[in-house]
Computed example of a mutant assay.
Amino acid sequence: MSPGNSPQTWTIQTWLSFLKDQAALLSNPGAHHKVLLEGAHALHRTHVIDHNGLSDLLEQADGALAYAVEALLEERIDDR
């Protein structure tokens, strides 16, 4: 799934599978975060989730990005 896909193709299950994809997250944290944000907003626009659900998904996406940045920084420190 990519940001350009139709919003109707997003489901909560799809979004959660993206959230759990550590390989994609760690290989390109910024792009992965963007897909998570766009997917969350697509779910909200199509009324799959309400405002509170959107807030929860955005918070989880931000947490995943923070995790990825921290993991990559730790990896760089360990490589020294």
Rank of each mutant, 00 (worst) to 15 (best):
E59D: 08
N5M: 13
D78S: 09
Q13S: 10
A71P: 04
H33L: 01
L19S: 00
G63C: 09
E70F: 10
E38A: 07
E70T: 13
L16I: 08
E59Y: 07
L65H: 05
S55E: 11
T46D: 08
L16P: 07
L26A: 02
L43T: 03
Q22G: 13
W15A: 00
S55D: 13
L57A: 01
Q60F: 11
Q22N: 14
A42Q: 00
D62R: 01
L25H: 03
E59I: 13
L19R: 12
K20A: 08
P3L: 05
L54Y: 07
L73A: 10
N5F: 11
P3H: 04
I12M: 02
H47G: 09
D79A: 10
R45Q: 05
A42P: 01
E59S: 15
E74G: 13
A68Y: 05
V48H: 06
A68K: 00
V35T: 00
D50W: 07
L57I: 08
N28I: 10
E75G: 10
A66M: 07
R76T: 04
H41Y: 14
L57C: 13
S17I: 15
A66F: 09
F18W: 15
L25T: 04
F18L: 13
H32W: 14
K34N: 15
H51M: 15
A42N: 00
T14A: 04
D62N: 04
R45I: 15
I77L: 01
S17N: 04
L16G: 11
H41G: 06
E59Q: 15
W15F: 06
P29C: 03
Q13C: 04
L73V: 08
D79T: 13
D21Q: 07
Q22P: 12
L54A: 06
S2N: 03
V35A: 09
S2P: 05
N5V: 13
A61N: 01
G63Q: 05
V69Q: 04
A24K: 00
G4N: 09
Q60K: 06
